Simulated assay, not measured.
Amino acid sequence: MTPADARSPQPQAKTGILIANLGTPDGYDYWSMRRYLNEFLSDKRVIDYPAWKWQPLLQGIILTKRPFTSGANYKLIWNEELNESPLMTITRSQTEALRARAHAEWGDRVMVDFCMRYGNPSTDEVLDRMVQAGCRRIVFLPLYPQYAGATSATANDQLFRALMQQKWQPSVRTCDPYFNREDYIAALAASVERKLEGRKPPKLVASYHGMPRRYADEGDPYYRHCRMTSDLLQRRLGWEDGIIDTTFQSVFGSEEWLRPYTVEHVAELARQGYTDIAVISPAFAADCIETLEEINGEIRESFEHAGGKEFTYIPCLNDDPAHVEVMLNVIRDNIGGWV
């Protein structure tokens, strides 16, 4: 007997371009937040404690209380018009801009979409959609300039798990981090100059998402990538040593994390007499809860409470044309021979 699919016309083979971001809850209500946080905090790449030790704490105390506080923070920044988080709005806009550029260059031979590591649209769902549309090759770009196990690696892990569900797996290329690319550094520098209108502040704090120091000690290159991004940004801006400080935010739990902590460092700067600072977040490809609420909320308040006066937040690159061009250039470097 001839299988049904052998008698059916197959879609024209395409190359898929799939970008991935961290994720977002579907809403800021308790159960939406709980589902999202449970998926996120159950990821062994994020929290690597043994399940017998971590899961009772997570399912008990943490997921009983944290959805309320996290939901309240999301509510402060929620895109009420579209009923979604800013990360979702921005990632969709990035995808649309990248799709337009990719189609202008490669036509209908490519399909461009996005997925989230946690929440919706899931990696499984989007990969399956691309395969069903005829994508026999996939270029996968996690939107994390600096590599970390808890970001780039877990995005790749999820893609590989999704591939395990496919009867006919497409070929896949995963993209390297782009923390030291000249075009990325140029886009960062341009965003600083644009926001500050050419002014050089006494201090520019480059605040990166934190991670337990133990992860770096065990071989994760994230800390080195962050320091290199800051150094390259300083050189591109033509600023002298000492103006850009590299710090880390979003500390969670009782372990020692990468230091200095942003929330403490900005307060110390104010106490030292630096009453005018700017803050940028080079590790985030899109503004999200950590930038729109944490930096513009908790971290700003810490600085002002310690005597700081002028606090300027420099937005993420988001869907800026220069950032879309960086993404397209990374894709170009990885799509060779496929289109």
Rank of each mutant, 00 (worst) to 15 (best):
M1P: 11
T2H: 07
A6P: 03
R7T: 11
S8W: 03
A13Q: 14
T15M: 03
G16R: 01
G16T: 07
L18Y: 04
A20L: 14
A20I: 15
L22E: 07
G23V: 13
D26Q: 14
D29F: 07
D29G: 07
W31Y: 12
W31S: 14
W31R: 09
M33N: 09
R35F: 06
Y36K: 10
N38E: 15
L41F: 09
S42P: 03
D43N: 12
K44V: 09
K44N: 11
R45T: 09
V46E: 11
I47S: 06
Y49W: 12
W54L: 08
L58I: 13
L58D: 07
F68L: 10
F68S: 08
T69K: 15
Y74G: 05
Y74L: 07
L76S: 11
L76E: 15
W78M: 02
S85P: 00
S85Q: 10
T89S: 15
I90K: 03
S93N: 14
W106K: 05
V110S: 00
M111W: 00
V112R: 06
D113E: 14
M116S: 12
R117S: 14
G119W: 05
P121R: 10
T123C: 13
E125N: 12
Q132A: 07
C135Q: 00
L141C: 06
Y147V: 07
T151Q: 12
S152H: 15
A153N: 08
T154I: 11
R161E: 14
A162M: 01
A162K: 06
Q165F: 04
K167W: 06
Q169V: 02
V172T: 02
R173E: 10
D176P: 01
N180R: 12
Y184M: 04
Y184E: 10
I185V: 12
A186K: 13
L196H: 05
R199V: 13
K203Q: 08
G210V: 07
P212L: 08
R214S: 07
Y215M: 13
A216V: 15
A216N: 11
G219K: 08
G219V: 04
R224C: 11
C226D: 04
M228F: 00
T229M: 04
D231K: 14
Q234M: 15
L237R: 00
G238Y: 13
D241H: 13
D241G: 10
D241F: 08
Q249V: 01
E255K: 06
P260N: 05
T262K: 01
T262C: 02
V263A: 04
V263E: 02
E264H: 11
V266Q: 02
R271A: 00
G273P: 10
T275Y: 09
I277M: 05
E294H: 01
N296F: 02
N296D: 08
R300K: 15
S302K: 08
G307F: 06
G307T: 04
F311Y: 14
T312W: 07
Y313D: 03
P315F: 00
C316H: 01
P321M: 11
A322M: 10
N329E: 08
R332M: 04
R332S: 07
D333P: 05
G337S: 06
